[in-house]
Design a protein around this nucleic acid. Structure first.
Length: 266
DNA sequence: TAGATTGTTACCGT
DNA sequence: CACGGTAACAATCT
């Protein structure tokens, strides 16, 4: 998916283009795109006739809130979901996503009374729409997490030294927003091996990790996306560390592919 | 063609 | 039980 940086672009697009417009109709092309108690009927009664007043982001979740007592609309984008409003895409090219948009990939659509429309294009259909999304089980948003909150997010009651730090960084219940590419880039910058156990991190490690986590998200948001990190171009067999030219190692951590430098990430 | 892909989650094992 | 790892989902691209 889009990671939190891309969802932030979606949020900005929604804020710029979708707020204040009266909703005329909701179309869910594939019922499997709905999650929780959401049905087309429930979605319709929640948003038809109202106007969104807020576009809010929590991790990779986009929440469009109404101006009345109606439930909020929660949108998730899976690995290939893209937000399109009035034909305007939030990001021109989604890495690992479709090269072009096809009508058949529209999984969710809101039509406005003025004739415009908000759509989610999602080939793989791993995204979803829901009403009043439960955010209670989500960790703090990674873009604004404090050092103290990060320390809490990485804490473990396990006797085995805790989970690999990469796995925990991507665990949305502890910290919301970080995905596979961002975690690789952050750990590379912080000089921490992805399989380091969280309990083994020193106070200095944690401070450095926090600094790079905040800095990386801010910098890549400026650059244009999660795929603009310094490590990305080398994230392939034979790729070399941009810092010391050591050949990168590839391993599976937390169920996902990690690329990292065995020399300076420890 | 085979293999890999920015995510989430039910399930299984320790 | 808590927690972590795994497979499945699904469609496309290289």
């Amino acid at each position: 998916m889009p990671e939190m940086i891309e969802i932030e672009y979606y949020r900005r697009l929604a804020e710029r283009t979708a707020l204040g417009r009266e909703v005329a109709k909701v179309t869910v092309v594939d019922a499997r795109y709905l999650r929780g108690r959401a049905t087309v009927r429930a979605l319709s009664s929640a948003v038809v006739g109202s106007r969104f007043v807020t576009a809010r982001r929590h991790g990779k979740l986009l929440v469009l809130e109404n101006d009345d007592e109606r439930p909020a609309l929660g949108l998730r984008f899976g690995m290939t979901g893209d937000l399109v409003v009035d034909g305007q895409v939030a990001i021109d090219h989604l890495e690992f996503g479709p090269v072009v948009h096809r009508p058949a990939w529209v999984r969710f659509r809101i039509r406005f009374v003025d004739g415009g429309r908000l759509e989610i294009h999602d080939p793989r259909r791993l995204g979803s729409a829901e009403l009043d999304p439960d955010e209670s089980h989500m960790g703090p948003d990674a873009a604004t997490v404090t050092l103290a909150e990060l320390v809490t997010a990485l804490a473990s009651r396990s006797a085995s030294g805790g989970p690999p730090v990469k796995a925990r960084l991507q665990d949305q219940a502890h910290l919301a927003g970080i995905g596979n590419l961002l975690s690789d880039e952050i750990l590379w910058r912080a000089g921490l091996a992805p399989d380091r156990r969280t309990a083994s991190l020193s106070p200095a490690d944690l401070r450095r990790l926090h600094r790079h986590l905040i800095g990386t998200i801010a910098e890549l948001t400026e650059r244009g996306g999660s795929h603009t990190g310094d490590l990305m171009a080398e994230r392939h067999p034979g790729g070399r560390c941009p810092r010391d030219r050591t050949e990168l190692r590839r391993s599976t951590v937390g169920g996902r592919t990690a690329w990292w430098c065995p020399k300076h990430q420890r």
